[in-house]
């Protein structure tokens, strides 16, 4: 996975970059299965590897498929990145160990969800129950974000394609006001 990411840095042809990004997403999905997150892996495989790749290709068709020049100032960003990474790795020293059942994250609401989901909702899939029921507000917000993003795309580039046809409803609205 890291190798794919590093290859992404070097590649200049944007078509290959997009394809590699799809491969990267698929690898991430496999990693999620290994980490017991089947729902997340499902989503990542469908969204990251499927839809994102198609959208990126659409953008390439609308723009250009080659990156122009090599990055000019490679040293300063590299130093910055290495320094940030070093600080972050220093920060992980106090983190709980991988897979530790006593980590703080597992001791607050998670046991509540795991024990109450059965009696409360009768659903075996805890992820769905938490998503739709216990944290329904969050999910409502997420759906609103997706809706807003779609409307935003519609306004940004949907309109510029055919300005004549699109202006009609707007005129009507103005006339109504």
């Amino acid at each position: 996975m890291a190798v794919t990411a590093l290859a992404l840095v070097r590649l200049r042809n944007l078509f290959a970059v997009v394809m590699l990004a799809g491969v990267f997403s698929l690898l991430a999905a496999v990693l999620y299965v290994v980490l017991d997150a089947v729902d997340v892996a499902f989503t990542e495989a469908a969204v990251g590897a499927g839809i994102t790749t198609v959208l990126m290709l659409g953008t390439l068709a609308l723009t250009t498929s080659d990156e122009k020049a090599a990055p000019r100032k490679t040293l300063a960003p590299l130093l910055l990145v290495v320094a940030t990474g070093a600080v972050l790795i220093y920060g992980t020293m106090d983190m709980p160990r991988y897979g530790d059942p006593n980590a703080p994250i597992h001791s607050h609401v998670a046991p509540y969800y795991l024990t109450r989901t059965g009696p409360d909702t009768g659903l075996p899939n805890v992820v769905t129950a938490v998503l739709a029921s216990y944290r329904g507000y969050d999910t409502l917000g997420e759906v609103a974000v997706i809706f807003t993003a779609a409307v935003g795309v519609l306004i940004l580039i949907g309109r510029s394609r055919r300005p004549k046809k699109k202006r009609k409803p707007a005129d009507k609205k103005e006339a109504a006001q």
Binding site: F42, L123, P124, N125, V127, L131
Partner: peptide, 8 residues
């Protein structure tokens, strides 16, 4: 079937 298995 998302209530019972992975999905939604």
């Amino acid at each position: 079937h998302g209530d019972f298995g992975p999905g939604g």
